[in-house]
């Protein structure tokens, strides 16, 4: 009996804590379901969303699965968010098809949906707040070409081959090289799941297999850090262009290990998603896509206010 009472006691204590946390003012309740959570990038999106929430006086929750493979976990989160009857939903789909029935449920319940990041492959979301990943990766290709002198071998270490960002960034980079730089050859495109360690190993194997390699493009934060680590471990001076920011990547650029990186504007993604949701709730019109922008940054411009504002540590 002692045990059961302890259990119930503990649970009630948690429930009370939890219940007292959100404020009960008559404000909009916006649920953001993202593709990830612990990752620095997603935490920056969350920071942007929180910023918008404070400015616009709405309440925002932010959730995402542990890894970007856990499609069903994300669906469970979306279902629980719907059951909460929020004012609006922000959603970055891991797999658009799997989410369709729930999105239709949201539509039927009159809950506006705003897509963000890689978006949702569906006509239900009112708008999508996102980076143009193809164009961003093409910019990475241009910078790469410039830095290696327009010729030689390059490689790509990307996070995955199934997600929209993974496909767009690889295609954006590879296609730009093919079209504009005939003397540059992409010798290898490998996938490390966005995992730093795995990406490190992949980078080392690419470097060992291609001693004359000129440059590597790391297509997201984890991949880019992995590439930098792999090159450092082998003492290679290969030109590295990364993607996104984060403390490790910023340090790599400061130290000169990495030439530079493309940054999205994750804070802007979070901010614009919440702002768009509020606009929708107020009945204002929204464009089909809200481009949240991207920049190339390196040692020279990192301190510029415009860049520093979108870099996350």
């Amino acid at each position: 009996m002692f045990n059961r009472r302890t259990l119930i006691g503990a649970i009630s204590a948690f429930a009370l804590l939890a219940a007292s946390a959100p404020s009960f003012a008559q404000q909009y309740d916006i649920a953001l379901i993202s593709k990830g959570f612990q990752h620095q990038f997603w935490q920056a999106v969350k920071a942007g969303a929180d910023k918008a929430a404070a400015e616009l006086d709405v309440s925002v929750t932010f959730e995402g699965p542990d890894t970007e493979a856990q499609v069903d976990r994300q669906i469970d989160m979306l279902a629980a968010a719907l059951a909460r009857k929020p004012s609006a939903i922000g959603f970055a789909a891991l797999d658009s098809q799997a989410a369709t029935p729930l999105l239709e449920q949201a539509k039927a319940a009159g809950i506006p949906v705003v897509a963000f990041d890689s978006g949702v492959d569906s006509d239900i979301p009112l708008t999508t707040a996102t980076t143009d990943n193809v164009a961003a990766a093409a910019l990475a290709a241009d910078k790469m070409a410039e830095l290696i002198g327009g010729e030689g071998k390059v490689a790509v270490v990307a996070h995955d081959q199934t997600s929209r960002t993974g496909i767009d960034r690889v295609d954006g980079f590879v296609n730009r090289i093919k079209e504009a730089y005939p003397n540059i050859e992409v010798v290898s495109v490998q996938y490390g799941g966005g995992d730093q360690l795995q990406s490190t190993e992949i980078t080392k194997s690419i470097l060992l297999a291609n001693p004359d390699l000129k440059g590597i493009f790391g297509a997201n934060e984890g991949s880019a850090i992995g590439v930098a680590n792999g090159a450092t471990e082998l003492g290679s001076k290969v030109v590295i262009i990364g993607f996104d920011s984060g403390a490790a990547q910023i340090k790599a650029i400061t130290d000169g290990v990495m030439a530079g990186a493309i940054t999205q504007n994750p804070v802007g993604i979070g901010y614009e998603t919440v702002a768009a949701a509020v606009k929708a709730l107020k009945g204002e019109a929204l464009p089909p896509v809200i481009d949240t922008g991207f920049y190339f940054y390196d040692k020279s411009n990192m301190a510029d206010p415009e860049i520093a504002a979108v870099l996350y540590q």
């Binding site: 939890a18 946390a21 929750t61 469970d76 989160m77 279902a79 629980a80 968010a81 059951a83 909460r84």
Partner: peptide, 8 residues
């Protein structure tokens, strides 16, 4: 998991 999410 569900309950804690409902409670935000």
């Amino acid at each position: 998991a569900n309950g804690l999410r409902i409670l935000s």
